[in-house]
Amino acid sequence: MDKLREEKLFKSLMLASLAIVVGSLFLVIAVVVWNGAPSLSLSMITQTPKGGYYLGKEGGILNAIVGSLYLAFGSMLLAIMISLPVALSLQKDYIGKTKAAYYIRLSLDVLWGTPSIVYGAFGFIVMLYLGMRASLLGGIIVLTLLQLPIMIRAMEEVVKLVPEELKEASYTLGATKLETTLGVVVKQALPGIVTAALLAFGRGIGDAASILFTAGYTDSLPRSLFDPVASLPLAVFFQLGTPFPEVQQRAYASALILLIIVLALSITSRYLSKRFMKNIIR
């Protein structure tokens, strides 16, 4: 009887936690959709802000959408190019067992926990020193730094999961470490690598604090890497900060767009992962 009670208690605890997770996700989406959907219009996603936009007049936030996509994809690509080699070299076949690797992991974990405003402040100082102004390039670089710890650690974990026998199979065929890493390890870990990249993308596209000073904000579309650039999180922030209800509603619409972009990317990467998964050895 007692066992049965325990079982029941545990089951209700699990259900409660599940309800909290699903409930809060649902609530967030509901609030954003409820407040944002009414002001979501075609002009919102096809036009840049016209004069008086922040007083509730004509225009859209195309500048922020384009800016965020540039920033997020640019920084994700840059971060992948740096993270993948680092994650692969943290395998035990390379430097994984050394003292250096231990300190690299430690610093990455510290960086992971560092608030993004610190990255922003750091980037700002460096840019001041270099005489660079807030720009797309500055934003991409700071966002890359922000993504590196997550991406490297997540990629390292999936690379570590590649079974030893697979590497052994490659080595016994006369492959070198590099050939084994590129030909077998990356292939086997690819779905996980995609997930790791996506995790970092999520952090990159949603972050406001780090790009506040480094990417700046502008009502026009960026024409080069050295122009300042708008972004969705900051668009939400600025519009929520105005005293006009219509503009505040547009903040929710901007948040909704952000949500849709993240969702779309999630689904695409799921689909891609599935295709890569075909050959995976389980």
């Binding site: 079974p163 052994e168 199979a169 080595y171 016994t172 292939k187 050959n279 050895i281």
Partner: peptide
Amino acid sequence: ITDVRRRMGLLPQKPNPLPMS
């Protein structure tokens, strides 16, 4: 060692196909 290894095939206890076709 890679040259030595290619001169010796290994058939393991548990088959270990590579993650490809």
